[in-house]
């Protein structure tokens, strides 16, 4: 049976892992390669690396990190942040990444998803959506690290992304991100009803129960989190043991 995935997310700035609360007040955490090795041993199912600055000079440092991670660990990982062109995608895939996550650039030029999916295969094109609930109960899509609201509705955009060729969705709820009060279950549910590709839930993990909630059949296929893993608040082996007791199929650590 296909297992639900636990995915630590590492935000990388100038070759270091950092964790921001609501995308600001960034604090330094650790060496990305060492953290990746630690998570691999602990039983993480996948990893995500976000290049959070993505200025040109830092880009080369980041590509080096991607290559070192690929050399060290034998589990899949996704790379995101600052991906704007087919050439950007090519360079991270060549460095050893398995999937590429595209966010703002996909909103600005949806053709990028289509072109990249044709060239590299749907399976490596991840559409990452930052969504914030509006007063009317819908979710607006935000870009530029949550700083700029767009006219898009997250559920519609997810559907369109699937049609364009995205092989997976990462849904990051801005309202719940960094709050540790649980994932935005309504957002996951609304999108899961609309698409037939895997959904990775992001934003809001604080307790083990939050993972078991969001990994129920009608929500997400994978749960992404950062600080609860980086600071050792939730050890992955303990989380997986807990999820198994809750009837959620996971790969044993």
């Amino acid at each position: 049976m296909l297992t639900k995935r636990i995915i630590p997310c590492l935000d990388v700035d100038k070759g270091r892992v950092v964790k921001g609360k609501k995308f600001t007040n960034i604090q330094d955490v650790a060496d990305p390669v060492k953290l990746a090795q630690r998570y691999n041993k602990a039983g993480a199912d996948e990893l995500v690396f976000y290049d959070i600055t993505a200025s040109n000079e830092d880009r080369d440092i980041f590509i080096d990190v991607v290559e070192q991670v690929a050399a060290e660990i034998a589990i899949p990982f996704t790379v995101g942040g600052g991906i704007r062109t087919v050439e950007d995608i090519h360079s991270v895939l060549r460095a050893g990444a398995d999937k590429v996550s595209i966010n703002s650039a996909a909103v600005q030029q949806p053709d990028l998803i289509e072109e990249a999916a044709k060239k590299f295969g749907k399976q490596c094109i991840v559409l990452s959506i930052d969504a914030k609930q509006t007063n009317d109960g819908r979710w607006a899509v935000y870009i530029h690290g949550g700083r700029k609201q767009t006219a898009l509705n997250a559920v519609d955009w997810a559907e369109q992304g699937e049609a364009l060729g995205a092989g997976e969705l990462v849904l990051n709820a801005i309202n719940t991100d960094g709050e540790k009060n649980g994932y935005d279950l309504d957002l996951m549910h609304a999108v899961a009803q609309a698409v037939n590709i895997p959904i990775v839930a992001s934003g809001g993990a604080g307790k083990m129960e939050h993972f078991s909630q969001v990994l129920q059949p009608t929500y997400a296929d994978a749960a992404l989190a950062a600080s609860v893993f980086h600071y050792g608040e939730i050890p992955i082996p303990a989380l997986k043991a807990y999820l198994a007791t809750q009837g959620i199929t996971v790969r044993p650590s």
């Binding site: 296909l2 995935r5 749907k122 399976q123 092989g167 997976e168 296929d221």
Partner: peptide, 13 residues
Amino acid sequence: PNNVKVPHMGWNN
């Protein structure tokens, strides 16, 4: 077949 999510992505036994 489309009665499951496609792509088949993740760890399976």
